[in-house]
Nucleic acid binder design. Structure first.
Lengths: 277, 277
DNA sequence: TATACTAATGACTAATCGGTCATTTGTCAA
DNA sequence: TTGACAAATGACCGATTAGTCATTAGTATA
């Protein structure tokens, strides 16, 4: 699978420079130093490459966010850490951010549009979870508005990273946005985004993690795993998905084992969702 | 010039559906019911069409925003009216919003990238002007942060119009965002966006209105104008640009005459900027 | 060394692209 | 009706594209 990685990385560079449609398969293979035929051994079509890239890079982003949100950080620093990790990701992966947050083609291909919205829904859910932890019942009807504001802050301030490379103080930025979020959360009285509205926009894309699809995902990841703690953990989890017997503590432990492997954070994230952990 | 309009409209539909690169000139001419040759009578290249469209649609948006901001509405409703007009525009021109706020290709062509950033800078200036009117000296170091927040609200909430067609209560939305803006403006204590930072990101694109370029712009618009009050006003203004003698009141009046003509709002906007009105 | 297998190549194809231009059509005044 | 001019056409061109496949290179086993 190293070849796939190489192609995705070089393609990301080119898409970020020229856009998807304007980049030819030829250019990608040239930058990779491989032949055109070799490309089609890894991906059936150019579109399949794009889909794989969307999955790979957005999964990274979503798990990044979720990890901070679910961490056991104290309430007074969690917002700061949330923003810090978001903008750290924007800084480190400016290229993928440029492609996946601005490339319109993604939205014209139905299959991709659905995927991207689905990842956005996942991220929204993480943010809502964070707000619920932070403010308990203090926010009731303004919860979703605060979530929209947070996403707005992200969109607006991320331009600083995407369109220029001015050195910025991430700590200061995170503190500043955490304060703004706090202010909005504490003082907003006129809500606009209702739960119904969120469901209306998210519903078609908010897919439950089905047992079947999860088993398939696990199967895929088992293939690439050699005998190890991670492999054993994943196999145990597979049986647990089919027939749950272990306690939540054990399940969570097994999931954490998986999460240590960088390429397995997504399957860990999905299993966690399945068991409501 | 009717042909140009037709092509731009149909092209906008197609770009909004498929993206720029994925749309062929053939498709555009088919939808217009004209031949391929006829297309090239109106536009020298496909790129020139795109540039014209960017100018046309973004000029509309910028003048919309500026008109509200410079209106003599009372302070307590100006924010609400500002948001209302913004989202009214998003609602009415969802197609162009889809293209010009999401199409990445625009950003890969240097000439267009500069143009788009330049329009963004114009809009930022309008927002800053509004904030200065509203809060005078109460905001000093947080002015630019509030501006970034407003742009973030716009980006985040505009998705409701761009990606779905759920009927929404614009008044309620505008009130809700006006309150959020007010809250941010009143309570923010930790700024991040400094004046230097704004200048760093905007400077290369923040072009002064030069006498020369303004005269050229006026000349272009005079061509398409028949004998009328508007025509006379524009000619008088042309002489005033070369040799100012009238008072500000007269100049403003003449500019307002021009602004009544829909296609002349941009030249009115530019002349206003030139005379600092 | 011989065999069997996979991985990798790049010349090739059919299709489509943006753009051109010789030709036709339409519209005037004379 | 004629002739002069502009508007509009679409067949055509060279260039480029995504994708294919017969062939070769590399490697492991026997």
């Amino acid at each position: 699978m190293l070849k796939k990685q190489l192609i995705m990385e070089k393609a990301l560079e080119l898409f970020s420079e020229q856009g998807f449609e304007a980049t030819s398969v030829q250019q990608i293979t040239e930058r990779c130093g491989i032949s055109k035929g070799a490309f089609y051994l890894s991906f059936k079509t150019k579109d399949e490459l794009l889909i794989s890239m969307v999955e790979y890079y957005l999964q990274q982003f979503v798990t990044d966010v979720d990890q901070v949100v679910r961490s056991s950080l104290s309430k007074d620093i969690i917002l700061v850490e949330f923003y810090k990790s978001i903008f750290q990701a924007f800084k480190n992966h400016a290229a993928s951010a440029r492609v996946f947050f601005n490339e319109k083609v993604l939205l014209t291909k139905k299959e991709l549009f659905q995927k991207i919205i689905a990842y956005d829904v996942e991220m929204s859910k993480s943010i809502i979870y964070m707000l619920e932890q932070l403010y308990q019942d203090e926010l009731h009807d303004t919860k979703y508005d605060v979530m929209y504001c947070i996403k707005g802050f992200m969109k607006s301030y991320s331009e600083l990273f995407i369109f220029s490379d001015i050195p910025l103080d991430l700590d200061q930025l995170a503190k500043s946005l955490a304060e703004k979020t706090e202010i909005i959360a504490r003082h907003t009285t006129i809500p606009f985004i209702t739960e119904e509205l969120v469901q209306l926009t998210a519903e078609p894309f908010d897919e439950e993690v089905s047992q079947e699809s999860l088993l398939e995902l696990i199967e895929q990841h088992l293939d690439g795993l050699e005998d190890s703690i991670e492999c054993e953990s994943l196999e145990l989890l597979k049986f647990q998905v089919e027939n749950p017997t272990y306690s939540k503590a054990i399940l969570k432990g097994l999931i954490e084992n998986i999460r240590l492997q960088p390429d397995y954070r997504w399957v860990a994230y999905k299993i966690g969702k399945y068991f409501n952990i």
